[in-house]
Design a binder for these strands. Structure first.
Lengths: 114, 114
DNA sequence: CGGAATCCGGAACGATACTG
DNA sequence: CAGTATCGTTCCGGATTCCG
């Protein structure tokens, strides 16, 4: 099995590396929303209905730090923050799309209706 | 956000459903190996070098129960067990392939050599 | 050989309260 | 409005032991 290091963490497969960047419960839902236009924090909070503030801000920060989205602070009162896609983030969209389609296919096989 | 139930567990996205079936550290590595030929337990153990017996047997059982691979017991002494792909499992391979390619692309962007 | 059962620690995650 | 801080819980996964 191949392996490599990044930030002192050991990875064994490229797939594992993908999950470390855009895996977890909320990152793909965030990217999927932000792909078309700028979204505000409160919009994302409302749209991803089961996410906590802690998880949302944590995941937004990581996606920013890893270069998938960017954050714009508009200094009005009260403050406005917008999240938009970067080019790197855009490249993830087709992957998420494939996973979504496959998810629907699996659900159909398993007799689950959405 | 859409949501649905399966086995009394709540899912919010199709992607989440995919991960519940073939996510985690070891399931895709297992599927990726079994795709071409039958593999024995001890072969998988050796090939996925960092997996424990607990995790390997647990993941193999779940993949069997979920219909992605099948298990053949050959009653020799000592017993021989082989794992092979089902049709359902085969359908997951292109998805894993896409994720692998994307993983290599991300690694290249991040200056990681495999 | 090919597992299953049990125990356990740490990381991930959730709910709530609070803040610039 | 857009987050932090803190605390409590859950759960993934490793180590170990045992079995047909």
């Amino acid at each position: 099995m191949p392996q490599f290091l990044s930030n002192n963490k050991k990875y064994y497969t490229p797939v594992e590396y993908v999950f470390s960047k855009i895996g977890g419960t909320y990152k793909m839902p965030i990217l999927w929303r932000v792909k078309d236009r700028a979204w505000r924090y409160s919009e994302l909070k409302k749209s991803i209905s089961n996410v906590s503030d802690r998880m949302l801000s944590k995941n937004l920060k990581e996606l920013c730090d890893d270069g998938f989205i960017s954050k714009t602070i508009i200094p009005e009162v009260p403050v406005k923050v917008e999240y938009t896609m970067t080019e790197r983030g855009q490249e993830a969209i087709p992957i998420i799309s494939v996973l979504r389609d496959y998810g629907f296919s699996l659900m159909k096989q398993d007799g689950i209706k959405d």
